[in-house]
Design a protein around this nucleic acid. Sequence first.
DNA 1: GTTGAGCGTT
Length: 294
Amino acid sequence: MSHFGRSGPPDIRDTYSLLVLNITFRTTADDLFPLFDKYGKVVDVFIPRDRRTGDSRGFAFVRYKYQDEAHKAVEKLDGRVVDGREIMVQFAKYGPNAERIHKGRVSESTSKLKSRSRSRSPRPSIMEDDSWAQQLTLKVVRYRDEYKEKDYGTRSRSRERYSRDRHHRSEREHRYRSKSRSASPGNRKRGRYDDERRSRSRSYGSASPVRNSSKSRRSPSPRRSPSPRRSLSPCMSASPQRSASPRTTPPRGENVFGRNRKERSPTPKDDSPHGRRDDSPSPSPRKSDADVSP
DNA sequence: GTTGAGCGTT
């Protein structure tokens, strides 16, 4: 949905998309357009919405016609307070200009902006978090020594429930999450892109030795470190067709079909076990469905 | 009426 009333995306042949983050949930394209149009020819302004509620997700995409103008807008508008919130503007990862971003100099500006943007929310410390977790672990071990597994289970459950957000998630996600990161009260409601983000942030506090690489950066962004995909659960290994066709990891983010990260289950209490496949990117229906439930 | 660290639609 664009500001120009066109149904789909406009001519994206030679446009440069900017990602605008941290906008308010009530900021519309009409609000952003005049702001960005001051710095160049804005081709389109698009604000992704939640499929269920139709609300803004808190970020927008602004397409510029020329790269210079887009770059200027990034420099000028990044950090600008819009509607009471400090927005962040950076080059979008996906889109037709993704290749140029990685190829050209745009990546430099993007990285610079990213580092600058990260500085605005300084997390306390990973070490603190780690030590806290260790202390908690010691505590748990002591308790377990007394009450065997009873108290341990209770504590684990309570933590899981504490870090749970509204959206339904699989059990292994819970396990990894509760083990890797402590549930801070401030982030009890994580983002809406649960799957991808969670899988990347899994290696956060698992004493990963690759921390020194992220130490060179001023602000370590652990969720960006690529983590190997989890092996399939034992029950899944029983189906050979699943393991026979592993998802080939696309280079970078070339898969413009970002919709493959299945939209959040709308109603956890109402969802069917097989989920909805109305927008499954794969043209061929999976056979496992027919096999498992004839 | 709420949320928040995140990459996109006909």
